[in-house]
Structures are given as structure tokens and as C-alpha cells.
Amino acid sequence: MTDNIAQFAELHQPGQPLILYNIWDAGSAQVAVRAGAKAVATGSLSVAGAQGFEDGEKLPFEFALTNAKHIVSAVDVPVSIDLETGYGADATAVGENARQMKDAGVAGLNLEDQDLSAGGLRDVSEQAERVKAAADTGLFINARTDLFIQTPLTDHDDALAQKALERCQAYADAGAGSFFIPFAADEKLIGDICEKASLPVNIMRMPDSPSISRLAELGVARISYGPGPWMAAMTAFEAEALKIFRNQA
């Protein structure tokens, strides 16, 4: 288990990013590995949607845990699970849930700093406690900030990048292994954050994102795709289903 976590951590190399084409179940994990994935990672929206739930911890934790077990048993590469905010009202609960994921064979977790009940972001110190509780299990924690998601695109500037770096340092001090900034797409801001961050940086690829090679040049260490792969699969499925059902004669 420890070797699996260490292997996952070593894959986070600035300039030589780990590519995670996000999966949602054991079958999609096997497809990703056959395609050449060195590790697999879920996206919470994808996992929830595949089970008929909305995102935002609407999927019961027990379902998420069972799904994680199935994925771990289906592939021989490190598995990272998007645990959203940790499914816990406090740091103790987050730590317990992280422990259960580790016992299931998971190598890493995503842990985000938005507050699902109150809205907005959690206070930095409160979120750092939650990150520490998860990191203390020994898992590799990809600490996500929703600063760029919750801030209008017109305000994605140097001041916002500085706020992100402050959160990065706090999460690094709490034991996180990498720093995730979804919806950050401006090359200058990404490059500045990668240069100054105390953790390897994770970027989510979107239609307006720089290319993989450019992100590597900027110093990114991890590139993920969020719900994109699941949405593409469902779009293709729906298109074929519509052809079948509308062409009945």
C-alpha cells in the first residue's frame, strides 16, 4: 500500500505532468489503463452521474467507497478518488473517511475547499485542518481550491493568483501532496503559480485551456479532465440511442 502511494506521488513531476483522463467506475478505469494511463482518478460529478445522483456529495459515501473498492480491484495502477469536501462536518470525520478510502486500497484523494452547505470557500485555517486530517492517514492529498471557479473570469488576475498561493502554502503545511486549481486557464497566471507554488500544480484541461505540451512548459505537474470524459461518453451514448429509438418503423 505504501509503495502504491509513493509511486503515485513520484508521478507528479513539474514539466512532465501526470495525465489523468478521469474515470468513473471499474470499467472506465480498465479502458484508461489499456490506453496507457499510469494512474487513474475519478471525478465526483462523473461518479455521481453514473449512479443517477447530482454532484455535491449527493452520492452516499458508502456508494463512493464501494465504487473505489471496485476500481482498485480492477486495475494495477494507483487510484485517486475525488472525495469532494471529504463527506465530513469536521476534520475528524474527514480523517475517518480518508482512512476508509486508504483501507480500500486508494493511493490518493482530491479534497476541495468549498463549503457545500454555506456556499463560498472555507476559511483557510479550517480547510487546512481538514487537509491535515486526510493527509495524516498517509494518503496523497490533491488539495483543491475553488477560487478560480467561484471568481468571475474577468477577475482572474495576479491578486487572485496570490490568494491561491496563500492557500497552497497552508495546504502544503498541512501535508498535501499537490495543489489543484480548476478553471485556471490563463497561461501567465498558471506559469506564475507553478513557479511560486510550494506544491506540484494540477490543472484541469478544458476547451479554452493551453495544450498539454504548453502546460508542461509552464511547469504543471498534473493534468486532469474532470467530468469531460464521462460527459463525452454520455453524449455519444445518447446520440446513438436517439438514432435507434427515433428510427423505429
Rank of each mutant, 00 (worst) to 15 (best):
F53S: 06
V77R: 13
N97A: 07
L199M: 14
L11G: 02
S28P: 09
A172Y: 06
R99Q: 13
A93K: 15
A176I: 11
F245S: 07
G88M: 12
N142W: 04
Y171E: 04
T85R: 02
S73M: 05
F180G: 01
A41Y: 03
L147Y: 08
G119P: 05
F237P: 04
T154Q: 09
A6I: 15
A74F: 13
A236Y: 09
M234H: 14
G43H: 07
A164D: 04
A91V: 13
L121F: 10
K38S: 10
Q150K: 15
L45T: 13
C168Q: 10
W24T: 01
T151W: 08
F179L: 05
G36A: 09
Q30H: 06
V131E: 02
D173A: 13
L147H: 09
P207K: 12
S125Y: 12
S178V: 11
Q248R: 14
V31G: 04
N142F: 05
I5C: 11
P207S: 11
H156V: 03
G191V: 00
F140C: 03
R246D: 06
Y87I: 07
A9C: 12
P60W: 07
P17D: 01
A143N: 03
D146M: 04
A64M: 11
N202M: 06
L153N: 12
D146W: 02
Q7K: 15
S80L: 15
V94S: 08
G138S: 11
P182V: 01
Q30C: 06
D76R: 14
R167F: 06
V40Y: 02
E54I: 03
S224T: 14
F183C: 15
P78Q: 08
L147W: 05
A232C: 14
D208A: 12
L18G: 05
D76F: 12
Q13A: 02
L242K: 15
Y171M: 09
L215P: 01
A133T: 06
A216Q: 10
E187F: 00
L65W: 04
R130E: 04
G226L: 10
A185P: 05
S198I: 12
G138L: 13
V220Y: 00
R99I: 02
A184Y: 01
